[in-house]
Amino acid sequence: MATYNANTVREEARLEELAHCAEERGVEILAVQEHRRVHTDQPINYRSREWGCTFITSSAWRNDAQAATGGVGLMVSPRARKALRRVHPHTNRILSADFEGSPVTTVMSVYSPTNVALIENWKGSTMT
């Protein structure tokens, strides 16, 4: 398990590079922040590719200038995907996933602003 602030994986090449790096290092579950992929029509997006990993995301959001920002998700290996029981978007900045096991393992991906972010920009986030 690992966590990573991607700064963006909007482009497919960046997503594939991220998947390759996780696989190369033996990371089964990668919590990703700041993916910047907007999909407001669905609360959770599952994206499986030929490289085997599944990228599970809650939507990023648009700022005042309409630029995509934020977004949390999990990149899971094929083995972790088989163990996945459920994914739950708590807010647009918190995503949790439960995996089979004894006991069940819950993994959370949480967006957090940098130390230079304006507090007004991240207070009171909700699902969109």
Rank of each mutant, 00 (worst) to 15 (best):
C21I: 14
A22Y: 08
R25W: 02
R25A: 10
G26R: 02
V27S: 01
E28H: 10
A31D: 03
Q33I: 11
E34I: 05
R36P: 06
R37T: 13
T40I: 15
N45C: 11
Y46W: 14
R47T: 11
R49F: 09
R49S: 15
E50W: 07
C53R: 05
C53T: 08
F55V: 13
F55G: 01
F55P: 08
I56G: 03
T57K: 04
R62P: 12
D64E: 15
D64Q: 10
A65V: 06
A68I: 07
T69C: 15
G70V: 08
L74D: 05
L74H: 00
V76S: 04
S77E: 05
R81G: 11
R81D: 11
K82C: 15
K82M: 09
P89G: 05
H90A: 03
H90I: 01
T91P: 12
T91K: 00
I94Y: 06
F99T: 00
P103G: 07
T106L: 06
S109G: 03
S112A: 01
P113Y: 02
P113T: 02
N115L: 09
V116K: 12
V116N: 14
A117W: 10
L118P: 11
L118S: 08
I119H: 14
E120G: 02
N121P: 09
W122E: 11
